[in-house]
Design a protein around this nucleic acid. Structure first.
Lengths: 334, 334
DNA sequence: CTGAAAGCGCTTACAG
DNA sequence: CTGAAAGCGCTTACAG
């Protein structure tokens, strides 16, 4: 491994000069500069980011921990963070908790040991409330992304009340009286908010409280059983809203198995949606997660926070848009 | 930030002792050890991985660069690498090239500057042949994953000849005489191999060379146009094989638009397949990418190589399995 | 069983 | 316009 010493020797200068040429931190005689540049080239010298970071107490890197990098909306948030990170000139270290609080804790630990300048975190569903305690007594900034919390950190997530209300109003306007909301694991704030917004939305749409079905459970098989039970009732719901892609998949499997037609037998809408969604028949009415923008905002908030650690915390909510498709019997192309 | 000096002072020992307690590198009097441990606890000391790495010339971290982390098979490979990396006790730094050679080059640069102990790379499609030159004149080990090359590096990928042959034989046995192979961007070795295997497979299945359609093009719109042209011929193919998920999506869009029924009007099979594939109607015959295993193997090869830089290079090919479904008119449940 | 000290590869005042 | 030297936070022979 070539170091600055070798480069300096070859160019006949001190390592100070090499450093200053490398970083453009002070004027260097043009001829000398060229000599240094040539020596760097000839030795294929590559700066040691570790040594540099140690000296500067700044790594120019940030960490991103997501709960499932494979899900389309998280993949998209990652892209947003990547883009903004590149713009801010910092390297992104990516980690995956796979919804496992232990892996999340290990990832946080590893990133802090690597002295990243800040961390963006989409918490795992079952993450303990004090998992973030480490950030309270410590100066590394944290931005919460998508999975919000009550704790005093910068946060960016999605607006949940308005789209839930809009969806319910839309279904009600089509004549649906009984709607099933599939919220899944309501330890996740996003899902909990959608569940809470549902009650309000039902009232405001003038629908009876009775007959509405709310499904909230952490385990997939319990969710499945409750969906099946609801669809077997004589007064079964005629419309369903899935609060995530995974929940939508679960519901669609059951709907297919029972050979229910969409939207004739059951109208269907989902939050987030599928990759290659245009291949579905009928196409699904979807609350589009503004994932890229959420990612960009998370990285921007973090950059700001790294600049100024004393400013008040921000909470940013980004409004999703609803794409009405054939699965709710809308006029749009199916 | 607490350092070892503070811990040492508090425990009334030297920093040598703190270091040895931390790493278990030499015996320390039990009572002293407890005092050090308590001091670490009280100061919430956290080891500085940067300083440690610099001193040891080893970061206990590896880099992984994929060309598209959002695609299901890459997401799965990432999981495999993560699991094996954890087993080897190294931290994984993940990066995404998004099929962009420039971003790939920057990612390689950033990882090398961070002095990772090794890199696993799934090259971008358009990556220049000399993109890997940097690894030749340099000791950081490289393992090529999924996207193979002719260069002398450790590599792990998927077996392509056998599944292609098997698929063609299967379709031929069902009476199909004209098959369309959609290979897409054959700068990608995997796709090129499938294309090459197709000719052999056709011959061996006793099908006429004439009437077979091979589509190879880097741009999506060119691929689309060629698929459409082929399906418009009077002697159009009655079966199609898509060589990747993206290509399958393109073909399925066209098939849906023309209201061709699967498998009656056209039999269809794909490599890799979709997330939530069980929601497709009919379900698609799929060559299942052994992605998790490929990821695990890549990380294992890298760990070996880090141990021993002089051993001969390995080339591992993992055989996929084919899941026959309704889209090729098989007996299996549709 | 433990400590003092060199050194990993940089950046950055300080001095000229 | 340039160089000598301190120091970032560790690990690890060396010495006792």
């Amino acid at each position: 491994m070539t170091t600055m010493v070798k480069v300096a020797k070859l160019a006949g200068v001190s390592i100070s000069t090499v450093s200053h040429v490398l970083n453009g931190t002070r004027h260097v005689n043009e001829e000398t500069r060229q000599r240094v540049l040539k020596a760097i080239e000839d030795t294929s010298y590559r700066q040691d980011a570790l040594a540099r970071a140690m000296r500067r107490s700044k790594t120019d890197s940030i960490g991103l921990i997501v709960s499932d990098g494979g899900e389309p909306s998280f993949a998209e948030m990652i892209r947003g963070v990547e883009q903004a990170a590149a713009r801010h000139g910092v390297t992104l270290l990516l980690a995956n908790s796979a919804e496992d609080p232990q892996r999340e804790a290990r990832a946080i630990q590893a990133l802090l040991e690597r002295r990243v300048d800040g961390i963006i975190l989409a918490q795992a569903a079952g993450s303990a409330p004090d998992a973030l305690a480490v950030f309270a007594q410590q100066e590394t900034p944290l931005v919460l992304m998508d999975r919000l919390s009550d704790l005093p950190f910068d946060q960016v997530g999605i607006e949940n009340r308005q789209p839930t209300a809009e969806l319910v109003a839309h279904l009600s306007a089509q004549g649906h009286q009984r709607i099933m909301l599939i919220a899944g694991d309501t330890r996740v704030a996003t899902l909990r908010e959608r569940l809470e917004a549902f009650d309000d939305a039902v009232t405001r749409a003038g629908l009876p409280a009775k007959g509405q079905v709310k499904i909230a459970a952490a385990q997939a098989d319990v969710v499945d059983a409750q969906i099946e039970e609801a669809l077997d009732r004589p007064d079964r719901p005629t419309a369903a809203i899935a609060c995530s892609t995974v929940l939508a998949a679960a519901a669609l499997r059951i709907i297919q198995r029972r050979r229910l037609r969409m939207p004739e037998d059951i109208a269907f809408a989902t939050f987030d949606g599928f990759a290659y969604a245009d291949l579905f028949e009928p196409r699904l009415t979807t609350v589009r997660h503004p994932a890229f923008e959420v990612g960009v905002t998370a990285a921007d908030l973090l950059a700001q926070r790294i600049e100024d650690k004393t400013a008040a915390h921000s909470l940013v909510r980004i409004a999703p848009t609803i794409e009405y498709r054939g699965s709710t019997g809308s006029a749009a192309v199916s």
